[in-house]
Nucleic acid binder design. Structure first.
Lengths: 228, 228
DNA sequence: GGACTAAATTAGGGGTACCTAAAATACCAC
DNA sequence: GTGGTATTTTAGGTACCCCTAATTTAGTCC
């Protein structure tokens, strides 16, 4: 696997993220994710297809090939190990590790990443709850639902939030929510209204979570499942 | 101080290193150091002069301006802190830290560097003995002589070796020379012949150091100075 | 001081990766 | 099936940073 440019690495990562649903990734979505003009994406897509990192159906979208997926997962591993290292070793705030890792992921060697992983005891998840691909390119995607979809009266556990929105992360931290926090949904107002949750901790007050945020916080259901 | 490109950072670092003698840095020397064609250097020199990072006297050479020097020292600080961190925290071999730091120095934020420096207790020297500029751009250049210039019968202390030649570093390590190692010169053959040194340690055998290597190992004299 | 040599610069060109504007294609509604 | 709209692609251009080849300049030797 030849050395890929920084831009190519960014494209592969973005295609992986956008393509997790299984659908082909469209030019426009990719352009927005990478913050370039759609025309620029078209150009890069040709290059990536020539390198056989993606397959491209004109006017439809792109998908990663086997080697493209392997490369993407390697970059994602680098990113998430770096985030975990910064957060753990340097007590780095979880809202800014992403930006730093975004830079370092293109410069850090495989060797450095493995040393960091070792020092951390080969963590499975990064500070935002995202699974860290193994060195051989295996990743376990979790089956999560937005907090907004956890039924009233059910206990949920906050498991994952995107690392990309620093402001959102700061707000989540101010609510004292971290990955692993458990809560019970005690109210959910209709028409995409806010969700009210209650923590187990003694003296915990109910917390009101706006709908948009409740969409961004991905959770597992704990305990009694609702009839389905 | 705006964000500088990777290439610009490499040029500034090289100009600083080559210009330590105080003489203007010539295009050819810079081209060799950076491993590009002299014509490419001419082009970049124009850009750097426009950015007022260097002053350029055509056909004579270049010198760093105040802001150029500040930028160069910042990059060198990043490089040397990174080298020290890798060597100290990950027990990274001293012959390969340079290559890794060369990549990371362009990606690591000021903040990361300062956290590393803190974790290391603000080291003064990197693993090869090179002084680490302070965060405010101060550097203490040492007054050293090559081992080949340490007089016979005098004790010397190995203080500094360039981090650039990995093969040389591996050989030095195999001789069990590290920064701080003391020795006495017991023989130095004429016509740039090899130098023979003797360590203090019990059971230490005399070691023969080829002239070229004895030029690369920079030392201080310890104890009785020779009449001068 | 003129010719020769070594060094530096200019001239012209290529690859990467971006842009805007214009053209092509796909999709949906009727 | 045709028209309109949204999306994608192509066309043409810019900036960065490198290259080789040709030219210019500086310095030296007689």
């Amino acid at each position: 696997m030849a050395d890929l440019s920084r831009s190519i690495e960014d494209y592969l990562k973005a295609i992986y993220e956008l393509g997790r649903s299984g659908l082909p990734v469209q030019t426009g979505a990719l352009a927005e994710e990478i913050a370039v003009a759609p025309a620029s994406v078209s150009g890069m897509v040709r290059r990536l297809a020539e390198l056989e990192l993606i397959s491209h159906t004109p006017y439809r979208g792109v998908e990663l090939t086997g080697s493209g997926r392997r490369a993407a997962l390697q970059i994602i591993r680098r990113h998430r190990i770096l985030e975990t290292y910064l957060a753990t070793v340097f007590a780095w705030d979880w809202d800014t590790v992403h930006a730093e890792a975004e830079q370092l992921e293109h410069a850090a060697s495989e060797r450095l990443i493995e040393r960091m992983a070792e020092a951390l005891g080969h963590p499975q998840f990064d500070p935002h709850g995202a699974p860290i691909p193994s060195a051989d390119g295996h990743i376990e995607e979790q089956d999560l639902v937005p907090m907004a979809a956890v039924p009233i009266g059910t206990e949920g556990e906050f498991r994952l939030v995107s690392d990309e929105d620093a402001e959102l992360l700061r707000y989540v931290a101010s609510l004292e929510f971290t990955v692993g926090t458990r809560f019970e949904v005690i109210e959910a107002l209709p028409f995409n209204g806010p969700v009210t949750v209650q923590r187990r901790a003694q003296g915990a007050q109910p917390q009101v979570i706006g709908f948009e945020l409740a969409q961004a916080l991905l959770c597992t259901r704990v305990g009694q499942a609702v009839a389905s």
